[in-house]
Amino acid sequence: MTATETNSEMEEFEPNIIGFLCNWCSYAGADLAGTSRIQYPPNIKIIKVMCSGRVNPMYVVNALQQGADGVLIGGCHPGDCHYQHGNLLARRRMAILKNLLEFIGIDSRRVRMTWVSAAEGRKFAEVIKEVTEEIKKIGPMKDIQRVNEW
């Protein structure tokens, strides 16, 4: 495969990114980005959860199995969690999950976490941009994707 071919293939690749955003901050931040008409890549598909602490690591693995190329978890800034410290528990979990995925051979950059408050529409758009760019570079997630052998 020549370099140009690779490039053109990469350009065509539009990643699927699943965003688990917390109801109170990140989701509201995404909302603000929308109402403020800030442009961001359409690659992200958002699933609202009540708190980033609600994100079971299995959600992440299942998303990667079912066609997501990346997963973004959005929570409130430390101290702002509406459930006091759900985001801080999530932070611990994701730190270990990312390391485990990396160790198994799944690029840990596919799993990202961010703090976005309800007022940070612009930051939200930037995060999405950055994540999308990065996952485009990494390429599609094929390794553990569910193949329905039937």
Binding site: L88, R91, A95, R112, W115
Partner: peptide, 16 residues
């Protein structure tokens, strides 16, 4: 338990 608790200064360099 490890995941039942946290420290405010847990590392977070991976967070955007």
């Amino acid at each position: 338990p490890l995941f039942g608790t946290f420290r405010p200064d847990d590392p977070e360099e991976f967070i955007m």
